[in-house]
Amino acid sequence: MQRNKDLYQFLLNKAEQLTEDWYASLDKSGTGVYSSTDPEVIKGLKAQNFEFHQHLCKIFIMKKDDFFEEFEDWVREIGRDPEHLNTPTHLIMREFLRVREQYMDFINMYTKETEDLVSQKSIDIWKYAVIEAIDVLMTRVVEEKSNHLNARIEEQQQTINELSSPLIDLPNGKALLPLVGDIDSDRASAIFENTLEGCTSKRVDHLFIDLSGVYLVDTRVAQQIFQLITGLKLIGVTTTLSGIRPEIAQTAVQLGIDFGEILITSNLAQAISAEAIPSQEN
């Protein structure tokens, strides 16, 4: 146990050297945080690396669960750091592996200084502990980065969906929902939720849905569009459809959707300028 404490102190004393040696040997020709020439970014990168060493050497004096728990704040910081988010993941992994080699060298350096006191078994145990710890931490950082990027993508997609289905206010409790582009299931779900909420908050009693800009929908999406109309009816909103393309009409018919109670016009101008007439079933 004392030897573990001695090794911990040895590595802790070398933390600053580990950081400087690491940065000096860093391949700065790539992209991302490692190639930055901004003094503040470089300073921050070195500080993150130095903090890593201060934590990592504790693997020799702490219980494993406590060790990894203490490391979580650092993992989250790196995984969400804008500079690391803009750095290719394979370069981040490369640096973890380079640091791992640094530790192998420093353990060898320590054992040479205490050659008569350290068994090969102890050396192997120390090296395995470092290898395992760095592998786990590397995986956690990559996972945190991936989760954070995916969350950002989902937020951006949600924003895109909201912007691509704007609810436009019209006079006298009316509103317009112009739909443009392909509609997949995710976008259809967003349209459903945003439209119901928007009509409720804006107190809309008549909504014009224009489909003239929609060229492709699958059967599930077509069903969701007509479920939206049903949902609007339940909250007291009358719906008029305009610009239904033949492909969409064909899909709706194949699904057995009843147009009998749906107000339909051939184009948006007709829908807004004239009173829509319910379609008649043949």
Rank of each mutant, 00 (worst) to 15 (best):
K5M: 09
Q54C: 12
T37Q: 09
F96C: 11
V237D: 02
A175M: 06
K112V: 11
N172P: 03
E95A: 04
E83G: 05
P82E: 11
L263W: 08
F68Q: 08
Q156C: 01
I248M: 10
S146L: 13
E69R: 15
D184P: 07
T239N: 05
N150K: 15
I59Y: 00
M62L: 12
E113R: 10
V217M: 09
F52W: 12
K58V: 03
L207T: 01
V142P: 01
K43W: 02
L12A: 10
F60L: 12
A249C: 05
S189A: 07
E115N: 13
D6F: 11
E16Y: 07
D258G: 11
N49E: 12
V221Y: 05
I277H: 13
Y23S: 00
L117S: 14
L177P: 00
L11F: 04
E40S: 12
A151F: 00
S242E: 02
D205A: 14
P246I: 05
R100Q: 11
G79I: 04
T37V: 07
L18A: 04
E20H: 03
P166G: 08
E83F: 07
D6W: 13
Q227D: 06
N86R: 09
M93K: 12
A133H: 11
D66V: 14
Y23D: 03
S29A: 14
F10L: 06
D21P: 00
D73T: 12
D73Q: 10
L91N: 03
T230N: 08
N108D: 10
Q254A: 09
R100K: 09
L26A: 07
I92R: 02
T265R: 02
Y23E: 04
Q254R: 10
C57W: 04
P178G: 07
D182R: 15
R100F: 15
R76L: 13
L207I: 06
V217N: 00
V217R: 04
D218K: 04
R80W: 09
T195Y: 03
V214F: 01
E143Q: 03
M1G: 15
Q280Y: 10
L91C: 05
D105H: 13
H53G: 00
S164P: 03
S273K: 14
I107H: 00
T19S: 08
Q158I: 07
I59T: 01
M62D: 06
K121P: 01
L177D: 12
I78F: 01
R203Y: 10
R94W: 01
K46Y: 05
E51V: 08
H53V: 09
L228W: 02
T37D: 15
F60W: 13
L137Q: 02
R140I: 06
V217K: 05
D210M: 01
S242D: 07
V217Y: 06
I59G: 00
E275S: 12
L179M: 03
L7D: 01
H206P: 04
I191T: 09
K112H: 12
L211N: 00
I160F: 10
V180Q: 04
K5N: 14
V204N: 02
T195I: 08
Q17H: 14
T265I: 10
L176V: 07
I61N: 09
D218M: 10
A47Y: 08
S35H: 00
D205H: 15
N4H: 10
T31E: 13
Y34K: 02
V142S: 07
A47H: 06
T111W: 02
K112W: 02
S119I: 08
A274R: 10
S279A: 09
I225K: 00
Q280I: 11
I59A: 15
L97I: 14
L176T: 06
